[in-house]
Amino acid sequence: MNKIGYPQGSAPSGITPGGNPASRGQGLETDINDSNIWYRENGKCLVYKKPTPVQVVRVDYPSRQRARITEAYYKTPSTTDYNGVYKGRYLDFEAKETKNIRGFPLSMVHPHQIRHLEQVARHGGIGFFIIRFSSLQKTFLVDAMALIREMKACQHSSIPAAWFDANGVLLQESLYPRLAWLAAVDQLYFQT
């Protein structure tokens, strides 16, 4: 049996040596979180996952060390998944993953997320979506305003996957960073 020596001591989450490449990740957010840690540790950008605001209602205390939340609810709808700063610009983005091979369901993006990303653009920030078509094994970065315009013009319940091929940037996967979304940001927003 071959042993794999990873550069930082262990495999990134979601990588199983000898495993099926189609099932490498534990999900899109895990891949983004791992990439964000790598980007921060290497001084590339400062991006974090936003916490979801939760109101705790009831906690069970069988002992102090084993306290367990038994009832809670979301305070307000979350805006987007991630925000931070890169090259002096504010970044704000949403991650969505679908198994649908025909297209991206419009129902996956909520009205409050659209309003939020429109405000980000209005104030000069960079807003985008990272969309993974897990069945196609493709992940795209697409400008938020381009996707929102397409959603508003769409006559169907989903945007065809081919639209993302034409309008998004296909993200490369690697060991470090796991998902190279920052290169796509450079390509879309910082080309001179």
Rank of each mutant, 00 (worst) to 15 (best):
M145K: 09
C154H: 05
G18A: 02
L117S: 02
L136E: 04
A146S: 12
N20H: 08
I4Y: 10
W163A: 04
Q172R: 08
W181P: 03
D34T: 13
I69Y: 00
R102D: 12
R24L: 09
A11T: 03
A72N: 07
D143S: 09
S107N: 13
D143T: 10
Q187M: 01
Q65R: 11
H110S: 14
K152F: 08
A161D: 04
P7K: 07
R178N: 09
A22H: 15
Y82Q: 03
A180W: 03
T98P: 06
Q55I: 15
G103Q: 01
E118P: 03
R115Y: 02
Y6R: 08
A162F: 02
R178A: 11
S23W: 06
F133R: 02
A184P: 00
Y73Q: 08
S78P: 07
K50I: 10
N100S: 08
Q155C: 11
M151L: 12
V85S: 15
V185W: 00
Y189A: 08
K44Y: 14
D92W: 04
E150D: 09
T52L: 14
L91W: 00
I101M: 10
T80H: 06
S10K: 12
F133N: 04
F133Y: 00
R40H: 09
K152R: 14
L141E: 04
Q137C: 14
M145T: 13
G88L: 02
P7C: 06
I126P: 03
D81C: 02
S174R: 07
Q155N: 08
A11I: 03
I130H: 00
S174E: 04
K99P: 13
F129V: 04
Q55C: 11
M1F: 12
G127T: 03
D81A: 01
F190A: 06
K50D: 05
L28P: 00
Y176K: 13
G127P: 05
V109N: 06
A184I: 00
V169Y: 02
